[in-house]
């Protein structure tokens, strides 16, 4: 069984964002594997342990930007592939989904494609659905538990106010959430192997779908308004005095 795990490289969430001349930069912050995708890698590796599956990490990025793929390899993925694009900023989610779908068809004989629930940087959270639809595969979204039996998939779907048990069949696309379990740490041997591993490259142009920059056109970046208020500390000698003053402040601000 072949399982594809889609991974994206993002800037670390500790990074400070700078904006100048409508260009965003983040100093020398490292790139990391999108934390949401770590759960997808973990889901793939769990299935590998149970069903002897082959786990292939798949990313889209500039040639050479392979940190996330190597992290997936270090965690235990069998191999990694990169769809290379010259200018990822021109790529909207639909272009990404079409590229991933084309790659999956080219790889052939894939039973599952796993995604994290969204990326840390653009945060769109729709590529899994778009890929499922493009491939004509069922989507199992926001999944925290996966059981495979033959061709059928039983899964637990975690929505905001409810949990569903759903059933479908392979091939399928799955987006994975945190309930799947903590992502494993790479072993020393895993890290060594990942450093040396060869990452197979598929230029986007060869997949017949150039990134299409025409659906979404960048206009401008902005930083959020800085919070102008500093914290006002409430003081008092007893809990009841602190509480009373807090309620007063809420009333002054017409919050209650």
């Amino acid at each position: 069984m072949k399982i594809i795990v889609c991974v994206k490289q993002v800037v670390d969430s500790e990074a400070t964002i700078h904006l100048a001349q409508d260009t965003i930069s983040w100093g020398d912050s490292p790139f990391i594997l999108n934390p949401f995708d770590e759960y997808a890698v973990e889901a793939g590796l769990k299935l590998k342990d149970l069903h002897n599956a082959e786990v292939i990490a798949l990313g889209i990025g500039k040639p050479g930007e392979t940190d996330a793929l190597r992290r997936a390899l270090a965690m235990g993925a069998d191999s990694a592939m990169q769809i290379t694009v010259e200018d990822p900023s021109k790529m909207d989610t639909l272009s990404a989904a079409r590229l991933v779908s084309a790659a999956i068809e080219k790889i052939g004989d894939v039973q599952l494609v796993l995604f994290g629930r969204q990326s840390l940087d653009s945060g769109s959270g729709i590529v899994a659905a778009q890929t499922a639809r493009t491939l004509g595969w069922p989507l199992l979204g926001y999944i925290g538990k996966i059981d495979l039996e033959g061709d059928s998939i039983m899964a637990e779907r975690f929505l905001e106010e409810k949990k569903l048990t759903i059933k479908s069949h392979m091939p399928a696309a799955i987006s994975v959430v945190q309930s799947i379990g903590e992502p494993r740490y790479p072993s020393f041997i895993g890290i060594k192997r990942a450093q040396k591993a060869e990452i197979q490259v598929m230029p986007a142009a060869e997949l017949g779908n150039y990134p299409d920059g025409s659906r979404l056109l960048h206009d401008s970046f902005a930083l959020p308004l800085k919070k102008t208020t500093t914290c006002e500390f409430i003081t008092g000698d007893s809990s009841s005095e602190l509480a009373e003053k807090t309620v007063q402040k809420m009333m002054e601000r017409k919050i209650l």
Binding site: L19, I24, D121, G123, R215, L217, D219, S220
Partner: peptide
């Protein structure tokens, strides 16, 4: 970037 910035986009 988790709300650290905003992007304005024209829809095609």
């Amino acid at each position: 970037y988790e709300g650290k910035a905003f992007e304005k986009i024209a829809l095609g």
